[in-house]
């Protein structure tokens, strides 16, 4: 009977209990990044500003998704679904912006 209970699944997935300290560490990192992004916004570095601001936002998003949302400890299928959402988002952005950024660059009248 015991062999039916000790399946790998019981140690797996969303039932992985993280110590509270993990959440506090992520929270502290999020706070540091919040202060950093607001402080950085007042320093003029031209186009680099936008890049760094977005990098900070993406780092915050990854920490929230990985630890708070437990993606890091979830089964592969959840990884696939979570990354699929962002993959389609990237495709939507890439194709649309590729159009708007290159309009007029061929110098054809009416294009």
């Amino acid at each position: 009977m015991s062999d039916t209970i000790t399946t790998p699944e019981t140690e797996h997935g969303s039932h992985h209990i993280l110590p509270k300290s993990s959440y506090y560490v992520v929270y502290a990192a999020l706070m540091v990044l919040l202060v950093a992004t607001v402080g950085f916004a007042y320093i003029d570095l031209g186009r680099v500003n936008f890049l760094v601001t977005m990098l900070i936002a993406i780092s915050k998003a990854l920490m929230i998704a990985m630890i708070f949302m437990h993606v890091r400890y979830s089964e592969r299928l959840v990884w696939l679904f979570a990354s699929a959402a962002f993959l389609w988002l990237v495709i939507m952005f890439a194709f649309t912006l590729a159009d708007y950024f290159t309009r007029g660059s061929l110098n054809i009248l009416g294009k």
Partner: peptide, 22 residues
């Protein structure tokens, strides 16, 4: 099992969140 039920719920929730991302 409850584990299977839980994982199905999680997958459904992530599908919903994917539509929210869009």
């Amino acid at each position: 099992t409850l584990e299977q039920q839980h994982q199905s719920a999680a997958l459904g929730m992530w599908t919903f969140l994917a539509t929210e991302v869009m």
